[in-house]
Computed example of a mutant assay.
Amino acid sequence: MEQIASALADAARWRIVELLAERPRSVGELAELTGLRQPQTTKHLQALARAGLVTVFPLGQRRVYAVETAPLAALARRLRELVEATEAHEGERDVIARYRAAIETESAVADRERWADGRTFSFERVLAAPRDVVWRHWVDPDLLASWWTPPPMTVTDCALEPRAGGRAVLEYRDAEGRYRSEGQVHTAKQPERLVFDLSVLDAAGAVSFSGHYDLTLTAAPNGTRLRLGLRITETAVEAVPYIAGIETGWGQVLDNLAGAVGASQRTTRAVTKGKEPQS
C-alpha cells in the first residue's frame, strides 16, 4: 500500500493514471498529452509498473500501457477505512479544538500571578459499581494508574495513600516529556470521602498551581454517586495550559474510571462464579 501511495504522490504519475483509466495508451501518446519528454514519461511508467499500477504490452515497436484496477481498488478500500476511522473518532478532534479554545480564553486573563486562585470545578458521575470497588480504584496504586490520565499519556508513578498525611503523587509521561504533581492526603474515610492536595510542578520543580480536591462517594440505586470538587490556588502565569485542560481532562479520566470499575465488576463476577475472566 505504501508503494502504491508513493507512486501516485507524483502529480505527473497521477495524471498518467487518469489518462490510462480512459483507455490504454502508448508512451508517445502519454508524453504528448502530459507535456513530458518520452524518457521522463517512460521513467514514470516504470515507477507505476513497479507499484503494480500499470501493465505494459509490447506491440512491435510500440509499447502500450494499461492501468491495473486491483491496486486502485485496494487503495480506495484503505482510504474508505481511514475516512470511517476518522469519522468514528471525531469526538477526539473536538476535544483538541475545545482545549485550544480554552487556552486562548485563559491566556487573555493570565496577566499576573495567582490569576486563577479561588476558581472551583465540580464533577459528578454515577458509576455502575459499589462504593468499595470505586474506593479501591482511588487508593490502590495499580488500579489508580489504570485510569488516572487521559490518552495518550502513561502513568509512571501515582499514589493516594488513604490516611491523614499520606502521600499524594501523580507522574505521567507522553511523547513530549514527563509531568509531575505532588501533595498530601488530608482526610480518608473509607469508602466515603477522600480529601487531598496536588501541586502541579513545572520542569524546574516550581509550583504551577495547586489543586485542592474533595472526593465523596455515596450509594446510589445503580451503584455509586461520585462527586469531586476542585479548588485552585497558587496559580502561576505559566499555568495556562494546565488550567485550560482541567475540565476536559477530568471529564476524560472520570470516563476512564467508569470503564475501569465496570471492567472490574465483570471480572469479579466471573471469578465468583468459578469461571475464568473473559479477555
Rank of each mutant, 00 (worst) to 15 (best):
I232M: 13
P152D: 09
T105V: 14
T187E: 15
I246N: 07
A12E: 15
Q61G: 11
H137D: 02
E238T: 10
P191H: 06
G205C: 01
H137P: 02
V126I: 15
Q40D: 13
L127E: 04
K43L: 12
E22H: 03
T41S: 07
A97N: 06
A188R: 08
V169K: 02
N256H: 14
L75Q: 09
V240P: 02
D255N: 10
V207N: 04
V207L: 00
W148H: 11
L45D: 03
I232P: 03
W138V: 06
A220N: 01
V134R: 04
A116P: 03
L59N: 10
E18K: 07
E124D: 10
E2R: 15
R78E: 15
I243C: 02
W250N: 08
R25N: 03
W250E: 02
L254T: 02
A204Q: 14
Q252G: 04
Q252Y: 01
T272A: 14
I232N: 09
E29W: 05
V169M: 05
A101L: 09
D94I: 11
E22L: 11
D157Y: 00
V195L: 10
S264N: 04
R167P: 06
P24Y: 03
G177P: 06
V126S: 04
G166Y: 01
R15F: 07
E238A: 13
Q252V: 12
A244C: 05
T105Y: 03
A128V: 12
L75R: 12
V67A: 14
T233S: 14
P162M: 08
E81K: 13
L33Y: 06
A31E: 02
T248R: 11
D132G: 00
G183E: 05
E106P: 02
R178E: 12
Q40N: 10
E18S: 09
Q61L: 14
T224L: 07
V133F: 02
R93S: 08
L160I: 06
D255S: 11
Q265V: 15
D132N: 09
S181Y: 00
T86E: 11
R112Y: 01
Q40P: 09
A7T: 07
A175M: 07
D197M: 07
L170E: 04
V139Y: 06
D10N: 14
E18F: 05
E238Q: 11
A236G: 05
S26G: 15
R227Y: 04
P221Q: 06
L82Q: 15
L215W: 10
P24D: 04
A101D: 13
V64D: 02
D132H: 11
R180T: 10
P221C: 08
R78K: 13
R78I: 10
L144C: 05
T224F: 01
T105I: 12
D10S: 14
A85K: 09
V126G: 01
R119V: 14
M153L: 12
E161I: 08
P71L: 02
E90P: 00
L257M: 05
G165L: 09
R100E: 13
L75Y: 07
E113W: 08
R112M: 01
P24L: 01
R23V: 12
A258R: 12
E90F: 06
V126A: 04
V271A: 13
P152T: 03
K275F: 10
T149Y: 00
I16V: 15
E22S: 05
G205L: 04
